[in-house]
């Protein structure tokens, strides 16, 4: 039986009895997941590859809907509503729950236009408002200094680490309430990784963060809560410092001591 702690503060999201089945699969890839996601904190999801951590992450902004035939069951509550409802307005949902991917995904346009993209989608056309919010986002993503004199340059000219910060700036520009990070440093060098980790910690003042990582040290360094998943089950969710020192489940212990995965 899974061991899930209660969260004392406010929750950003609540997952209840959540099953996810990929198109054509006979068995669900996520089985009866129930967990709270604490507000203004960082929740890390760890586990061996194929455990379902990315699948769970991509359910929070309904990314799976891009590929027809996938099936959700159960509930994910956000702001009192079940976002798995087929009638959910996905465009609106995705502006409230942003996402950062495994690899930097700078769009083929200028640095400025990348950050302004989400704002323009929201309908903001006013030049000075755009300018202000782009600058603020770039500052919050700690990349303003490097980009302020070349905002009109192609974003693909930036280094990998810079591009990932740009993507973070792009995501926070629309002021989401939740940010999903899908192994955000897996394509980066150690120094860029350090920078991104620092940034993620700073961001939790404003947003609630869920981060999927294959790197246990990273989870230990940045997160407040850690969930350990295995074969589609959430085995344990606990305070990060407790989970890595005194895990309650045997499987968690085996995983963090390197017995498998």
């Amino acid at each position: 039986m899974a061991s899930i702690i209660d969260i004392k503060g406010e929750c950003a999201l609540h997952v209840r009895n959540f099953d996810f089945t990929y198109k054509g699969a006979t068995a669900p890839s996520l089985k009866k997941i129930s967990m709270p996601i604490a507000k203004n904190s960082i929740t890390a999801l760890i586990g061996p590859s194929g455990c379902g951590k990315t699948t769970l992450l991509r359910s929070f902004n309904r990314m799976h809907d891009l590929y027809p035939g996938n099936k959700y069951e159960g509930e994910i509550l956000f702001d009192g509503r079940n976002i798995l409802d087929p009638k959910e307005d996905l465009i609106h949902l995705r502006t409230r729950i942003g996402m950062i991917f495994q690899k930097p995904t700078a769009f083929p346009m200028s640095i400025y236009d990348n950050v302004a993209y989400g704002l323009r989608l929201k309908g903001i056309k006013n030049k000075s408002e755009l300018d202000g919010r782009v600058e603020k986002a770039l500052q919050d993503a700690a990349i303003w200094k490097e980009t302020q004199d070349r905002l009109k340059h192609d974003a693909n000219g930036l280094s990998g680490g810079q591009q990932q910060r740009l993507c973070i700036a792009r995501a926070i520009a629309v002021e989401p309430e939740v940010l999903l990070f899908d192994e955000p440093t897996s394509a980066l060098d150690p120094i860029s990784t350090q920078g991104i980790e620092k940034l993620v910690i700073e961001l939790k003042e404003k947003v609630s963060i869920i981060i999927v990582t294959h790197n246990m040290q990273q989870a230990a360094r940045v997160s407040d809560y850690t969930g350990f998943m295995y074969l589609g089950d959430l085995i344990e969710l606990g305070y990060t410092e407790e989970l890595f020192v005194t895990p309650k489940e045997k499987l968690t212990q085996e995983y963090i001591t390197g017995k498998f995965g």
């Binding site: 990314m63 942003g98 996402m99 991917f101 769009f107 989608l121």
Partner: peptide, 24 residues
């Protein structure tokens, strides 16, 4: 992944086609 990032910002299919796929 590039298309998904545009969807993740709240883009519609056409937004993704004209702003990401065609420029790319």
């Amino acid at each position: 992944i590039l298309k998904e990032s545009a969807y993740a910002l709240g883009g519609t299919q056409w937004d993704v086609i004209k702003d990401v796929i065609i420029p790319y």
